[in-house]
Design a protein around this nucleic acid. Sequence first.
DNA 1: TGATCAACAAGACTCGTCGTCTCGTTGCTC
DNA 2: GAGCAACGAGACGACGAGTCTTGTTGATCA
Lengths: 178, 178
Amino acid sequence: MRVLDAAFDLVGASSPGSVSVDSIAAAADVAKQTIYRWWPSRTAVVLDALVHATLKATPFRESDDVRADFERHLRSVVTLFNSPTGQIIRELVAESQSDPEIAAEFRQRFWGPRRELSQARLERGIEMGQIRADIDAEVVLDAIYGALWTRLMIGHLPMRPADASRIVDAVWPGIAVD
Amino acid sequence: MRVLDAAFDLVGASSPGSVSVDSIAAAADVAKQTIYRWWPSRTAVVLDALVHATLKATPFRESDDVRADFERHLRSVVTLFNSPTGQIIRELVAESQSDPEIAAEFRQRFWGPRRELSQARLERGIEMGQIRADIDAEVVLDAIYGALWTRLMIGHLPMRPADASRIVDAVWPGIAVD
DNA sequence: TGATCAACAAGACTCGTCGTCTCGTTGCTC
DNA sequence: GAGCAACGAGACGACGAGTCTTGTTGATCA
């Protein structure tokens, strides 16, 4: 879809919030009305572009070492956040603050599926005897991934692949068996 | 300052992004030009209102038990995020995504000072022999506080005081001595 | 071949908000 | 009481979201 590609390129390349529907329409060589025929709002286009572009991004590899799997996955999240996709995510989270519907849809279509993958990996780790069974999975995942999400949204520090290891270093002793 | 009070009340009470300069001016019984005489932009007013309202909020108590201090502080952050101030923070982080100047000022005036307090407490903990000296302080703080910041910005789960304890439970074994 | 119709491009339009500008008023200072 | 800075009130221009109109295209079916 030309519209989604144009939205992805424009939002990913420039600073969030600076991309108008007119510019997306112009870049996609499409009439504005055509965009509103298929999407209810500007942000819905951007959300669709994000979901469309990240369907296969950052998969969760399942080896026999849960900790290594998490570290690997965190590393791919760092790469994703540092890519144009990171700009799009920033824009959508920003928009979510003033639009509950976008917030709900963002959680349902982007956040939820990824959270479920992480959660499933955590539970498998428990079954495999590598992770304690009495942890609060939500809190643990918020601590692990929240570190990166916060850097994405606040921008107080850059994200580097090595940070993935350090995050796991910080959290793992609290959840590992023994 | 009537303008700051009005901005705080309006933004804190309604959903972020729905408060215009006109409505702030009307609520403060002030001409719009007066606002622009003292602040460069709408968001600057909101940021000022936030800083003004939280000068003394969530202090860091320093007992001889670093872990208890962090848990207590996290609890106060939960309260802050669940209050109208949380709405204002959400709005400012959202605005930061499209305005680098606001982002920089938000980090400098709100995020920075609070981060320094946490960092200082962490370092004192190291001196006191309760925290390992080889931790990455930034990553540890991002994991601890990022869990709450992420819930604030994504809204996937509510924040409850008990979560403060669980966050500390999850992270502490990774940073405590022994 | 020709009628029908949905999707389309182009662009005018309304509406709300940001930020600027003008003008007349207030209240303080010398 | 003259001068002046801050003020209230409100008009104004710019801009982007979303709607609406008009004329065109291209596929389907008789």
